[in-house]
Design a protein around this nucleic acid. Structure first.
Length: 245
RNA sequence: UCUAUACGAGUCU
């Protein structure tokens, strides 16, 4: 089974979903019974290509076979629906996990927080952070960064600051992505001076900016016509050698 | 306290 699954996984990773399905059928013909892992891999493959309906169809197939989807599969679907703006469906799956007693994790929460956040439901996103604690989980930097991203997108920078304070009270430290989200947020609001200040803070804390951080700033400068600044940034970047990852 | 799915957050396109 492991062999079948890894072959199918290989195809899915490459986005060759048609081939994966054909291969799956052939395997079935040879007496292979797809298991939860098989389904997981294929569902993820479809979700990555934004073909959620096909993923959901397999999910239903799995359920009809009296197998239980694992948290990987739920998380994958919740994330896909969230990304697609279909919060209703994401929440439905989230609740289903709860009622079936499937282990929720910070991945589950962050996926949904991201969904709420990106669709403007910031109160719900915030609520989930608290709910996590009630569930005995600790929101991590990813959860907080997703929330901060929502505040940035809606221009609620005061809330970004209070969120940072909350994080620090729990001893959760903003990372490269958290800072980049904020820098991008300020840039998009036309406040590149503040963005530069955030970059300074970031470096002071020993968090190293990467190419995405610089791109966010560069984009901000160019939209404000700050060519000089953009060049300075560019020099800065090549002088220090930027981490790619 | 090992157990097969690069499960979650950022820029530009």
């Amino acid at each position: 089974n492991l062999t079948y699954n890894s072959l199918i996984n290989g195809l899915c990773q490459k986005g060759k979903m048609e081939d994966a399905i054909i291969f799956l059928e052939k395997c079935k013909f040879q007496g292979f019974n797809p298991d939860v892992y098989t389904y997981g891999v294929i569902i993820e493959g479809f979700c990555k290509k934004d073909e959620i309906q096909k993923g959901k169809k397999l999910f239903n197939e799995l359920v009809n076979k009296n197998m239980e989807a694992n948290s990987f599969i739920y998380n994958t679907l919740i994330r896909a629906y969230s990304k697609n703006g279909d919060i209703t469906e994401a929440v439905k799956l989230f609740n289903e996990m709860k009622s079936k007693g499937i282990q929720l994790s910070s991945v589950t929460y962050s996926s949904l927080i991201h969904g709420y956040s990106n669709n403007g439901y910031l109160d719900d996103a915030k609520r989930l952070i608290n709910e996590m604690r009630d569930d005995g989980l600790s929101p991590d930097v990813v959860c907080y960064t997703a929330l901060i991203g929502g505040y940035c997108k809606t221009g609620q920078m005061e809330k970004v600051l209070t969120t940072l304070e909350e994080m620090s009270s729990y001893d959760i430290h903003p990372n490269k992505i958290t800072y980049t989200v904020m820098i991008d947020g300020y840039c998009k609001l036309g406040q590149t001076e503040v963005a530069v200040k955030v970059l300074g803070e970031m470096e002071q804390k020993g968090v190293v900016p990467d190419v995405v951080t610089y791109n966010a700033l560069a984009d901000g400068f160019s939209k404000e016509g700050k060519i000089e600044e953009a060049f300075r940034l560019f020099n800065d970047m090549s002088r220090r050698g930027v981490d790619l990852d």
